[in-house]
């Protein structure tokens, strides 16, 4: 049984004027446990919305979304929040670290709402991504690459089954981008987590064996997805 199984997933956005704009129409999508898949797609194609649906941040209008054996589309928001906190790690393009918190505290937040805080595990993760000497530094005291590594550690903090990465290297130069990507993939493998990454960067996509085209996958028109 796949870790993630999506069937006829549909999400529309409604404009203030009352118009309905289809954004996501995914007839079928599956992802196995520990599988690493890249989704290719242009900006504004609805990839983030797709990831937000998988993360349970958004609720689908219709269709089925089964994650780790649980049907998410039937869940209320608090249940989706709990599932997200314990099952999904999320890496963002802009890292989304909390500026007032240290690297260690940011990683702790990754487990606070799920399995609970484990300082030793958080520190070990930061050491694993090469930030053992930066535990108590705040994001603004870290380089862009270091901030991304904190974000990777945070995404893995709750020992998730699935890591979602939304253009995770979009803010990095080519060299750092390659390093960050290698780190994400390696860390996911070490932690037994599946990885679903979206990007439009050919350099990033070229690193994956399994690259799927989001335009083919998503039957909503690109214009509608804007």
């Amino acid at each position: 049984m796949p870790l993630l199984e999506i069937t006829n997933l549909r999400k529309d956005f409604r404009s203030p004027a009352g118009g309905v704009h289809p954004v996501v129409r995914i007839p079928r999508f599956t992802l196995g446990g520990e599988e690493q898949v890249a989704l290719r797609g242009e900006s504004g194609s609805g990839k983030t919305t797709f990831l937000n649906l998988i993360a349970g941040i958004l609720k689908p209008d219709s269709g089925s979304l089964v994650l780790a054996g649980r049907e998410m589309s039937a869940m209320g928001e608090p249940e989706r929040d709990s599932l997200r906190a314990g099952t999904i790690g999320y890496i963002f393009q802009t890292f989304n670290l909390l500026q007032g918190h240290t690297a260690l505290e940011n990683v702790l937040l990754g487990m606070s709402f799920g399995p609970g805080e484990d300082r030793a595990h958080a520190a070990a993760l930061l050491r694993r991504v090469g930030l053992g000497d930066r535990l108590h530094h705040r994001p603004r005291e870290l380089s862009t690459g270091q901030q991304q590594r904190v974000a990777v550690a945070r995404a893995l903090a709750a020992r998730p089954k699935l890591v979602l990465a939304d253009e995770p290297t979009g803010n990095l130069d080519q060299v750092r981008s390659r390093e960050a990507l290698a780190l994400i993939r390696e860390a996911c493998r070490e932690n037994g987590a599946a990885l679903l990454l979206v990007s439009h960067d050919p350099g990033v996509l070229g690193e994956f064996e399994d690259v799927r085209d989001f335009r083919t996958l998503n039957q909503a028109t690109p214009e509608a997805a804007q």
Partner: peptide, 16 residues
Amino acid sequence: RREIAILRALGARRRT
């Protein structure tokens, strides 16, 4: 707002 959104993305509930 952004900070709140990040916390929610990490699994924090609205009531939290």
